[in-house]
Simulated scan of single mutants.
Amino acid sequence: MHDAHLPRYVSAQSLEDAGQWLLDLQTHPERFEDFDRWLHSDDEHFEAWARVNRVWDTVGKQPATTKRHWPRRTRLPLLAAACVSAMAVCAALVLSPGWRADYSTSTAQTREVILSDGSRLTLAPQSAVNVSFNDRQREVMLVQGEVFFEVVHDARKPFEVRSEDAVIRVLGTAFDVARRSSGLSVEVRDGTVGVNGQYRLAAGQRVWIDRQSGLGTQSAVTPTEVAGWVNGSQFFENASVAQVVEQLDRYQPGWIVIQDPALANKRVTGLYDMRDTQRALQALVAPIGGEVRQYSALLTVIGSKKPTAEK
């Protein structure tokens, strides 16, 4: 009997190494060439890499509920263990910030929520919120990610959005709040928004609160471009490649690794389709001398385009 389709033996060490590479490439993209050498040094490594990818993909396909959320990158050490232990997968899910959130979304998922006062929340992928209403005020805690708020006016009950970076206070308006790795942004489509008691934003204005310094920077934004991601596309103006990639990373499982730090810091302006991340990445980096290599369904590497050798 031909045994070509029987599972290939893979050592626990190879599985552990493959899981560790998933982690290392996220935090140390400059090690991609080392990973490539490891992968090609033994046929067993290819099989280990494939199995690790399948485990990650299986976890990623679990449906999100109000009590379950796709693990954040801060929980990656747990997910590495998941490659060789199903129990570690459960631990990663339980410890995820969205696990106990009232409402949350998973990778590439958006969700619309109607609150008891009629206000509408639209959650971007990998986002989570907690809601607390009482007789005096309405409060939403942004646990992670990005949310577009359409708040019903009620002069008796202010509406507050809180995060570790800011307190946003409104009566009735439409605005977007996004928590990024380096800070928080607030963009207003309609009405007026107060941020931290220091900034008052009208329609067509935004503020960026830097997490490290705590300082805010105000600028203009076209109102119709606020929360464009709700319809599938997002406009970025003078954003770094790293900032755009951070957003696109929420729309596909696995990792998008920027191998070249200089490329990560380049500034771009453009409209990108968040529903087709590979196409968006090509449109993002090709004009500035970058290239996209999809190493597996769960690993995409962005680097500077290598010069073609002359014949």
Score class of each variant (00 low, 15 high):
Ser11Asp: 13
Leu142Trp: 08
Thr277Leu: 04
Val131Glu: 01
Gly197Val: 13
Leu15Phe: 06
Gln198Tyr: 12
Leu123Trp: 11
Arg179Trp: 02
Lys311Glu: 05
His28Trp: 02
Arg179Phe: 03
Leu263Lys: 10
Arg211Gly: 14
Trp255Gly: 01
Asp249Thr: 14
Arg267Met: 02
Lys266Pro: 06
Thr224Phe: 01
Thr222Ile: 07
Glu150Tyr: 07
Thr122Ser: 00
Phe32Leu: 15
Ala88Tyr: 14
Asn238Gly: 07
Ser85Glu: 06
Ala91Thr: 10
Glu187Arg: 01
Arg75Met: 14
His69Arg: 06
Pro63Cys: 00
Arg8Ser: 14
Val131Met: 00
Ala64His: 02
Arg100Ser: 10
Ala80Pro: 05
Leu95Trp: 06
His69Cys: 03
Leu281Arg: 11
Ala174Met: 07
Glu16Asn: 10
Trp38Val: 14
Arg73Ile: 15
Gly204Trp: 04
Glu30Ala: 11
Pro77Phe: 06
Asp43Trp: 15
Pro261Asn: 08
Leu201Thr: 13
Ala108Phe: 00
Cys83Val: 15
Gln294Val: 04
Ser85Phe: 10
Leu6Val: 14
Arg68Ser: 00
Leu93Val: 02
Arg100Thr: 13
Asp36Trp: 09
Ala86Gln: 04
Thr105Gly: 00
Met274His: 12
Gly98Lys: 09
Glu112His: 06
Phe236Gln: 13
Glu237Val: 15
Ala239Gly: 07
Leu22Gln: 08
Pro287Ser: 03
Trp99Arg: 14
Asp34Arg: 00
Leu95Met: 07
Pro307His: 07
Gly232His: 07
Ala280Phe: 09
Thr105Cys: 03
Gln247Cys: 08
Arg206Cys: 03
Pro29Gln: 08
Ile288Gly: 05
Ile288His: 03
Ala203Met: 13
Trp56Arg: 01
Arg8Leu: 15
Val301Thr: 10
Arg169Phe: 11
